[in-house]
Structures are given as C-alpha cells and as structure tokens.
Design a protein around this nucleic acid. Structure first.
Length: 570
DNA sequence: ACACGAAGCGCG
DNA sequence: AAAGCGCGCTTCGTGT
C-alpha cells in the first residue's frame, strides 16, 4: 500500500497511489487530515500486517518522522523522495533516463534554499508544531507535485539498466537509503545513553573542578604557566598557532607547524607539557562541560544524523560531533539498569568490500582469515601484518609516497585483480569520468572549472592540472570502496532494524538501536535479550553480504562486544 | 559586528 | 608515525 503524504494548509493531505505513482483506482480521492489527527491515523494504518503495511511516500523523512516519533508512532517503511531523487539523478544506472537529464534543470530540492545548517533550528517536536514546520519549509510541494515526482522516479527505476541485476541493486539502494532516513530519526529520538555524572567525573580527573565560565580549568592553567616559563614567553597563548610558533622559534625549536607529530620530533623540555596542554585543551573545548550542557539531557545524547550527507553514501552528523566521540569520554556512554550495550563492528570492512568488488580470489582466500591483514601478510609480506595493512590501505587511499607507496608494487604483484580494480577507478576519475558503487550510487561529475583547469597551456599550468587530476583520481579510487562499504552498512542497518522491530513486536525483547558510525552499531538491550540481539546483528550482516554480492566466498565477520560502558568495547 | 578560511585534531 | 580517502567542530585571525 503506497500512501503519499504532503503538507497542506489545514493539515496533511494523504492519497493512496499505485506502485507506479498513479492514483489508486479504488480510492483515488485525497484525504485531508488535521495536525492532531495525523499520529492516530498513521498508527491505525501501521497496525496492518507487515505485507500490507503502508509505504509512506514523503518529500523528506526529517520533516515528518520526528514529530510522529514524538507522538509515539513508528512506521514500518517509507520512500524518501529527496534522498532517492538525488541517487537517481546521478546514478550511472539511470544516466540515460529522462529523469536524470531533467533533474539537472529542475532539482526537487531548490539549490537556492540555504543549507539546513544555516536555517534556524527546528522547534521542539510536538504535535502542534508538526504542520507549521513542514508547511514553512516546503510550501511548493503539493500532493500532485509529489505524486508526479514519485512517478518520474519510478519510471527512471523501471528504465534502469537491467544487466547484472543493476536495476535490482538500485532498487535495493533506494529502499536502504529510505530505511536509513527512518533509522536516523529513530536514533535521534532514542539518543545514546549518557551518564552525565560519569562524564563529569572524567572531566574532573583530567582537568580539575569545573571552572567559572570563560576561565581555564585548573590543570590547563597550570600547564599554561609551566609553558610560559619554559619558553620564556610570559604572555603566551598556546591556543594561537601563530603565537605558539613564534615562541617555539624563539627557543630554537624549528618546526614548520605546531602539529602533534611534528612537535614530537623535538626533545625540548617544553614539548611534553605542550602536548599535554593540547590534549587536555581539546577535551575541554570539544567535549567539556559546555558540550555536556548543550547536548546531553535526560541521560541521552541526541545528535542529528544526516543521511546522504557524504557523497559516498556515508552519513554525516550535525551538532555535538556525534561521529567523533573521543575515546577519552566513551566511559560516559553507559547502559541503563538491567541493560547492556551491544557494540558490533564490521571487521576490516573496506578491504573486504574491495575483495568482493574485484572478485580477487587470491585475496578472498586471505579474507577467509578472521584477521584479513594477517592473511595477506602470510601470503605476500612474510608474515608482517603491519606492512600488509599499510600496503592495502595505501592502495585504497591512493598512497604514492612513504612506506605505503613503496609497498604498492609488491601488493600489485600479489593481487593484480584487487589492485587493478582501484587503479581503474583512479584512471576513470583522472580522465574526468564518474565511478559507481556496488548498488549504483555514482560519484558526482567534475565541475566546469575542473575541465577548464585541464586545458592548460604553460608548463606550470600543466603541472597544476596533472596534480588536480591525480587528486580526483584518489577521490574516485576511494569512492568505489568507501561508497560500496556504505552500501553494505546501509543494508546491514536496515536488516537489523527489521529484526529488532520483530523482536519488539512479539514482546520478547525491547531493544533499541542507539548509535551508528560507518561500520559500527550500538544496541541498547535488556540483559535477557542480549543473545537474540547478537543473533539479529550477525544475521543482518550475512543478509547484507548476500544482498550486495550474492553467494560469493567472501566473509564479512562482525565483532561483537557486550559491555556496560562503551570504553570497554575495544 | 559578522562571515569565512586555515589550522589543528577528533572519528571511521 | 604519517601517508593516501571521507567527514565535524573549535579557535584564531583576517577581511568586510
């Protein structure tokens, strides 16, 4: 059952449509629903059996779902027109379709609209705010406009290249992306379990008692005084790179930057307290008391996840640095009473994805090992695991210099298929072409200025052009691997969501997904439900592999830790 | 006063 | 150790 939902001046407009996007012959008339009625209507429709559950088609999940969740209503599935439209507009699988060619001229999301980050923060999600919010943001998307957009997207999908399952893969990507949008809203709603008392204890241990606003914590102040003495610079501000650089030079410390790794080359007595200062200063400014006040409430950290925020398909986030929770403070992430945190990550996901993409049977044999790098080390690097890891990551990132660059020929001799695959992606990018992930997400084409830069006259311009081209080659080289890993992770997440919903529905386990980070998930579960959740996580990983690649002999193992506190997960 | 880029560092 | 990829955030410092 496909239901279009559009904002309407007196509430929401709801219309049943066919899968192709035509008004449904049995019930073609739109239905108007007021703001206060909507959660009840949605809840009622969601009580149908899973096979008959509606697929909600809406412009942006972010505009509708948070308020529904706040009203206590979850939905089984949706179709996010904005996210799917972006994929279809750029995918090589649909490049020949009218949709892709029109999308360039009239994108669904007006490029004139300022990025969401520049808009005022949304009002607190409550039922009253639902319509004001939606109507305010997308006044021009009426029911019929959205229906036309949906029909156009379905037509493009139907017209996608059917060879090698490309159409099915793309359809899977659209479903996974839409599921991701729901999961993002649900995780924001749930929040990461966060013990403020433990966080404050960590801050006190590292920094001393909470300072007055605008003052340095005691330990930072002490280190600052020590630095001023050691560097004979009574007014030094170590937070200013320029100021710091001058002070270092005055003391004969000849560094070109004030980065950690460069400072560590020096043995001057001021270096140790300086590095300590930088470490603690970072903790204070990025995840200190101000962060705690701003982002944690009622025992939960609630960041906003931005699905489709990275061109490769990875998620981005907004607010609180959700994807950069430093190890130092992970002890504050703590399960509630009677609960556990289940932290699972896909081991060495990107190299394994490369093996599957390139169908490199020799590397697949190495990947049969639980530790892929150890397997590769045994095959081609005399058992030296560190070397094997450096070489393989260098191939994925496009390293040319240093140890990683030197190891490339050795890696290429041992694994011509895998290395050839990423080399091909790099050459495509250098030539101005696009590359595509396993499920059909394509890299953006180069800008006009990129092509202009390639038409160079002087030798100097030519050198610059080659450097720019190589840089784009590294991007496309990495894109196919990072993006296909994101495809896998999106399917893993969607499959896990479905299994956790089933466990919740039959009343056996009230577990919730609370965090996702590229190749890692966190589930907060009652102790009695831990085993069932672990099975769900592992089954979902196996399902994701099968969905992307079919029955190929490449393993995607997940490592699972059951802990009270996130800092014990690795 | 405010905007914006660079530097630096956190995460995968 | 960083290097080679992808991000977000804070602080400076400069330009308007």
């Amino acid at each position: 059952m496909y239901l279009l939902l559009a904002a309407h001046s007196h509430g929401a407009a709801l219309q049943q449509v066919t899968q192709a996007g035509d008004p449904h012959p049995d019930r073609p008339e739109p239905r108007l629903i007021s703001a206060s009625e909507l959660p009840g209507v949605v809840r009622h429709l969601e009580t149908r059996p899973r096979e008959a559950a509606p697929r909600w088609i809406w412009h942006r999940t972010q505009d509708w779902y948070p308020a529904l969740l706040a009203a206590g209503v979850e939905v089984e599935r949706c179709y996010d027109l904005s996210l799917c439209g972006t994929i279809l507009a750029y995918s090589e699988f649909t490049a020949h379709t009218e949709y892709a060619q029109q999308a360039e001229k009239a994108p669904l999301d007006d490029p004139q609209e300022p990025p969401r980050a520049l808009q005022p923060p949304p009002p607190p999600a409550d039922q009253g705010a639902l319509f004001e919010d939606v109507r305010h943001r997308s006044p021009r998307h009426t029911l019929s406009e959205l229906r036309a957009e949906y029909a156009a997207q379905q037509a493009a999908l139907a017209d996608a290249d059917p060879l090698e399952n490309k159409r099915k893969r793309l359809q899977l990507l659209l479903a996974a992306e839409s599921a991701g949008a729901m999961i993002a809203a649900e995780m924001q709603h749930a929040g990461v379990p966060w013990r403020e008392d433990l966080h404050e204890q960590i801050l006190a241990d590292y920094l001393g008692p909470r300072p007055q606003p605008g003052h340095r914590p005691a330990k930072l102040e002490a280190l600052n005084n020590e630095l001023r003495n050691l560097l004979n610079s009574p007014a030094l501000n170590p937070d200013s790179p320029q100021d710091l650089m001058r002070a270092l030079h005055r003391n004969g410390i000849e560094v070109k930057s004030t980065r950690q790794w460069e400072l560590m080359e020096s043995s001057h007595p001021a270096i140790e307290p300086l590095l300590a200062y930088k470490k603690l200063s970072r903790l204070h400014s990025a995840n200190g008391w101000a962060w705690l006040d701003a982002w944690v409430s009622d025992g939960r950290f609630r960041p906003e996840y931005v699905v489709g925020g990275v061109v490769s398909g990875r998620w981005a986030s907004r607010g609180g640095g959700a994807l950069q929770i430093p190890r130092q403070i992970r002890g504050a992430v703590h399960a509630g009473p009677g609960h556990k945190l289940i932290v699972a990550d896909a081991s060495q996901l990107e190299p394994r994805v490369l093996v599957a993409l390139a169908q490199d049977s020799k590397m697949a044999a190495a990947a049969r090992d639980k530790d892929l790098y150890a397997g590769i080390a045994a095959q081609g690097f005399g058992g030296d695991r560190a070397k094997a890891k450096t070489a393989l990551l260098g191939a994925i990132y496009g390293a040319t210099t240093g140890e990683s660059g030197r190891l490339m020929p050795q890696l290429a001799r041992t694994y011509p298929h895998a290395v050839g695959f990423v080399e091909q992606a790099a050459r495509e990018g250098e030539a101005g072409g696009t590359v595509t992930t396993r499920l059909g997400r394509s890299s953006p084409p180069p800008s006009q200025s990129w092509f202009r830069s390639q038409q160079s006259a002087t030798a100097e311009e030519q050198r610059r052009a080659e450097s720019i081209a190589r840089s784009r080659g590294r991007f496309t080289r990495n894109f196919v691997v990072q993006g296909s890993a994101a495809d896998w992770a999106a399917c893993w997440l969607a499959e896990l969501r479905r299994r956790l919903r089933a466990l919740r529905a039959d009343g056996s386990v009230q577990a919730e997904l609370v965090f996702f980070l590229h190749d890692e998930v966190m589930v907060h579960a009652p102790e009695a439900g831990v085993a069932a959740c672990i099975r769900a996580i592992e089954d979902a990983a196996a399902a994701a592999k099968e969905l992307l690649f079919g029955p190929i002999p490449v393993e995607f193992p997940v490592s699972v830790a059951v802990v009270d506190s996130y800092d014990n997960a690795k």
